[in-house]
Computed example of a mutant assay.
Amino acid sequence: MGYLLLGLLVFLGVHSVRMVSDSWRTQALARWGEGAYKGVYSLLAAAGLALIVWGFGVARETPVVLWTPPAGMRHLAALLTLLAFVLLAAAYVPGNAIKARWHHPMVLAVKTWALAHLLANGNLAHVLLFGAFLLWAVANFIACRRRDRALGITYPAGTAKGTGVTVVVGVGAWALFAFVLHGLLIGIRPIG
């Protein structure tokens, strides 16, 4: 469990720098240069992610069951992860109404993904992993929206075409992950 906790601390810590100290981030970018800053950031994030994956795998070998979720939670989790994939697509597909409305759909995707997995899993490792990501996403979404208001940032209106492409890409990515990749990569088939 220690590696999982260390990985969460490193990964989410790196991803919280702007939220916690935007002025330090600005100074580091100016002092180190964008390339060096992004290089260090990427190395730390990758190390944190590797520790999370390894620590989570080790923790799953000897699960500590806190509760057993009702079977229906798996169906709700599938629906919520579908929404999370559409939100994730909205972060990258230009000109969609989802990003125009919510401004930070990737952070909302993380929040929705984490909540879905908390509802469907009752092991300690799951609670630590997905609970940490949920708390981070809630705090980050609030910080991002506050920063947007302070800077007067506006987002362009979305189009029907951009929104349609977003939904199709999100649903397609969800189907691929839910029916194929989740089982191959994680070892659990959430559907089927």
Rank of each mutant, 00 (worst) to 15 (best):
residue 33 G to N: 09
residue 10 V to R: 08
residue 129 L to W: 15
residue 123 N to V: 05
residue 143 A to E: 05
residue 163 T to K: 12
residue 121 N to Q: 14
residue 147 R to W: 01
residue 150 A to V: 10
residue 33 G to I: 05
residue 43 L to E: 09
residue 52 I to C: 08
residue 87 L to G: 15
residue 114 A to L: 06
residue 27 Q to C: 04
residue 122 G to K: 13
residue 160 A to W: 07
residue 44 L to Q: 15
residue 171 V to K: 05
residue 154 T to K: 02
residue 185 L to G: 08
residue 49 L to Q: 07
residue 191 I to V: 10
residue 143 A to C: 08
residue 119 L to F: 03
residue 153 I to G: 04
residue 87 L to T: 00
residue 182 H to R: 06
residue 47 A to N: 03
residue 100 A to F: 00
residue 134 L to E: 09
residue 44 L to W: 15
residue 125 A to N: 06
residue 114 A to F: 02
residue 157 A to T: 08
residue 105 P to I: 00
residue 149 R to M: 01
residue 130 F to M: 13
residue 165 V to G: 09
residue 92 Y to P: 07
residue 52 I to R: 13
residue 47 A to I: 05
residue 175 A to R: 02
residue 6 L to R: 05
residue 164 G to A: 10
residue 49 L to I: 12
residue 156 P to E: 05
residue 95 G to F: 14
residue 62 T to W: 03
residue 34 E to C: 00
residue 111 K to D: 08
residue 36 A to Y: 10
residue 44 L to I: 14
residue 76 L to T: 02
residue 69 P to A: 04
residue 32 W to P: 08
residue 27 Q to P: 05
residue 77 A to V: 11
residue 180 V to R: 06
residue 144 C to M: 11
residue 161 K to Y: 09
residue 23 S to A: 13
residue 150 A to D: 13
residue 110 V to G: 09
residue 1 M to L: 12
residue 36 A to E: 04
residue 92 Y to W: 07
residue 83 L to E: 13
residue 144 C to G: 06
residue 66 L to H: 07
residue 40 V to T: 13
residue 186 I to D: 00
residue 178 A to L: 02
residue 31 R to Q: 07
residue 114 A to C: 04
residue 71 A to K: 01
residue 189 R to E: 15
residue 144 C to P: 03
residue 51 L to H: 12
residue 101 R to T: 06
residue 143 A to Q: 07
residue 95 G to W: 14
residue 189 R to N: 13
residue 144 C to L: 10
residue 36 A to F: 11
residue 93 V to C: 04
residue 138 V to P: 02
residue 22 D to A: 08
residue 108 L to N: 00
residue 86 V to R: 08
